[in-house]
Amino acid sequence: MTAPSAPVIDAEGVGKEFVLRRRTRGLRRAATRVPAVSEVSFTVRPGETVGYLGPNGAGKSTTLKMLVGILTPTAGRLRVAGLEPARQRTELAYRIGVVFGQRTTLWWDLPLRDSFALLRRMYRVPAAEHRARLEELVELLELAPFLATPVRQLSLGQRMRGDLTAALLHDPSLLVLDEPTIGLDVVSKAAVRDFLRRMNAERGTTILLTTHDLGDVERLCRRVMVIDHGRVAFDGDLAGLRALAPVPRTLVVDLAAPAPPIDVPGARVIRTDGPRQWLELAGNPAAVIARVSHDHEIADLTLREPDIEDVVTRLYRERPDPSAPAIAGDVRHNVE
């Protein structure tokens, strides 16, 4: 039905307005329209990996819910895998996999294996095909030891691997992930990212994910979209986002003994606490580190990356006027 080059997601002016009803006097009710997403337009082509970023309450999950057919948009045109999500929800379900990081799509009290068996029947995957795919996913995600464990007894990382398997058992062409690495430890995060990258590279699975973790974006997403106040405020690659809203990295230096603020070119002390000093880096960290370690006796060094919130916050501080043109060629309106 869809041509190979046709977009997997095609959003044109998609908006969602919630109607809040408040009881005013007695039984009379006043309705207020609250826009959650307004005129979001973008396309995602097959094989892309897109990070969908934005502060809390910016409209990320509302967009995601519209994409997978849980919520009906109030404006615009939306096509996912060539289908209209809210109206053709069931057909769409066969073609997409969905993972909610904050909650599992598996059955809490069932062993993983039983959850997978239920999903096979739901998606009507032929037994042989199911077995082969399950075997592959279980091996890639190292799930074999937990197949007999009820989901409630799994660690967060194990559960997430189970959820990923569940979302991919019917071989969807689009994978939608809402905060897939939230709360995971470093090892589990790396495993999830590696796995997603592999799925994208080897199977060509298109991936759209929301995250608060810059690491996810750096290791996974060639394309980044930032949404704020219900509008796409940036659409491009991570380097472009950083160039547009540069947030300096911070070098945390633990000196052998308390000392006056370190004075080196390319860095500025922003905070001190006994022997520990925080340096905001303007230039090349290697040069600064070399210089600092030459001048001082150092107990420890850490380089802190700015997180995504900082970048996004900076993006808005750079453009304080809410009606200023957005970077994606889009026009921002005050939605309050």
């Binding site: 819910k65 997978v68 929800r89 379900a93 997409i96 969905v98 909610f100 999903l119 739901m122 998606y123």
Partner: peptide
């Protein structure tokens, strides 16, 4: 608990 959302993304009524 949000399990209704989970059900909505599956291809069964």
């Amino acid at each position: 608990t949000g399990t209704l959302d989970t059900m909505l993304v599956r291809p069964v009524s």
